[in-house]
Simulated assay, not measured.
Amino acid sequence: MKKSLRIIISAVYFFSLFISLSVNASPQEWQKIKRPISGEPTPIGTYSNGCIIGAKALPFNGDGYQVIRTSKNRYYGHPEMISYLQDLGKKIKSRAMPDMLVGDIAMPGGGRFLTGHASHQMGLDADIWLRMGRLSTRDAQDPAGMGLLVVDRKARKVIDSLWTRDHETLLHLAAQDYRVARIFVNPAIKVKLCETVRGDRSWLRKLRPWFGHDSHFHVRLTCPKGASYCQNQSPIPVGEGCGRELYSWFEPAKPSSTKPKKKVIPEAPILCQQVLSAPNRSEWLD
Rank of each mutant, 00 (worst) to 15 (best):
H213I: 06
E168R: 04
C272L: 10
H120A: 10
S119V: 06
T196S: 15
S161H: 13
F184I: 07
Q66L: 09
P255S: 06
A155W: 04
C272G: 07
N73G: 08
R138F: 04
A181F: 04
K154Y: 04
F217D: 00
K2W: 08
W210M: 09
A55P: 03
C194G: 09
S136P: 11
Y84V: 05
C242R: 13
S94C: 03
P209Y: 07
P279L: 09
M107K: 15
K206S: 01
L130A: 00
W30D: 01
I52L: 14
Y65G: 10
M1D: 13
R6I: 11
E245R: 15
A181W: 05
M107W: 00
S228E: 13
G111W: 00
Y229Q: 11
R74S: 12
K259D: 05
L130H: 00
D99H: 07
A268N: 04
L21E: 13
S10C: 02
G111F: 02
P269M: 10
R244Q: 15
D127R: 01
L58P: 07
P79M: 05
E29N: 08
L21F: 11
Y65V: 07
G62N: 04
D214C: 09
M81R: 10
I92K: 02
G147D: 13
L58G: 02
Q121D: 00
V23Q: 09
Q231C: 06
L148Y: 06
F18S: 03
T164K: 08
P237H: 06
T222G: 10
P269W: 13
L101T: 03
W30H: 05
A106H: 02
M122T: 14
I82S: 01
